Computed example of a mutant assay.
Amino acid sequence: MSTERPEPALTPPADPPASSSAPSRRAFIATSTAIGGTVVAGGLVAGPPPLGAEAAVAAEAAPGSRVSLTVNGVRHTVTIDNRTSLLDLLRERLGLTGAKKGCNAGACGACTVLVDGRRVNSCLTLAVRLEGAEVTTVEGLEKGDRLHPLQQAFIDQDAFQCGFCTPGQIVSGVACIQEGHTGSPEEIREWMSGNLCRCGCYVKIERAIEQAAGRK
Rank of each mutant, 00 (worst) to 15 (best):
P6L: 11
V74I: 13
L96H: 09
G98E: 01
A56E: 13
A34T: 03
S85P: 08
A22R: 13
P13M: 00
E4G: 15
E131I: 08
L96V: 05
A30I: 11
R83H: 04
T79N: 13
L114R: 04
S65A: 09
R66H: 06
A9G: 09
G98V: 14
V78Y: 12
L130Q: 06
D15I: 07
T31M: 07
G109P: 02
G106W: 00
P50R: 00
K100C: 09
R66C: 02
G43H: 01
R26S: 11
H76T: 14
E54C: 00
S68E: 03
E60T: 10
R129H: 06
P6C: 08
A110M: 13
G37R: 15
L86I: 05
D88L: 14
P48C: 01
V39F: 04
L86A: 11
A110C: 14
V40E: 10
K100S: 12
R25T: 06
L89C: 03
E54M: 10
C108N: 13
E54S: 09
I35R: 05
A9S: 11
L126N: 07
L126A: 15
E92H: 04
A59K: 05
A99G: 14
A105L: 11
L96A: 11
V128M: 10
T77I: 07
A110Y: 10
L124H: 01
C103S: 08
S122L: 08
C103A: 03
C103K: 04
L69K: 15
N82E: 14
S85Y: 05
L44H: 00
I80E: 10
T38M: 15
